[in-house]
Simulated assay, not measured.
Amino acid sequence: MCTTPKPAIQGFLFTKAGPQFLEAARQMDKTDFSVERLQQTGSLGVLQEQPLHFDTSQNAIAIGRLLVKAADNTVFDITAYITPPGLPLKK
C-alpha cells in the first residue's frame, strides 16, 4: 500500500536541491510511485508521479504528486489528495 508521501526533508520551510535532484527523487520513490513524466529544461525540472496503489485506509488518499525544482534550486512538493468516497469517480 502506498502511504502518504513524505517530503524530502521534514521540518524546514523550504528545501534546496542539487543538479541531480530529479534523478535521485525518481530512484527514491520508485517502490510506491510510478514516474509519469520527467522533464528538465535548463534550470527547471519537473517530476510527475502516480501512486502504484491507493491506501484506502486513510482519510486522504494521495492520487498524484509533482516535484518541481525551480531555477534557484528550491524544491516544491505538490501532492493531490482525494477522499475515499471520491476515489471511484477518479478518471
Rank of each mutant, 00 (worst) to 15 (best):
K91D: 08
T41L: 15
S57C: 02
L66M: 10
L38N: 09
E23G: 07
F14D: 03
A60D: 02
I78Y: 09
Q48A: 13
G42K: 09
S43K: 15
V68M: 12
T56W: 02
P5I: 00
D32V: 05
L13M: 07
P19G: 04
M28N: 14
T4G: 02
A25P: 05
K30M: 14
G64D: 06
R37W: 04
H53C: 11
N59G: 12
A24R: 12
A70Y: 08
L89C: 04
S57V: 00
T4W: 01
A8E: 13
Q48N: 08
D32H: 12
E36P: 04
V68I: 15
A71V: 07
F76G: 06
V35L: 07
L13S: 13
L67W: 14
A17I: 01
K16R: 13
T74Q: 11
A17N: 00
K90P: 02
N59Y: 01
M1G: 10
A80Q: 11
K16A: 07
P85M: 02
L87G: 00
S34R: 14
P7I: 04
G42S: 09
G86H: 09
T83N: 02
T4F: 01
G18Q: 05
G64P: 06
I61E: 00
G64A: 12
M28L: 14
D29W: 13
L44M: 10
P88H: 06
A62M: 06
K30F: 11
P84L: 03
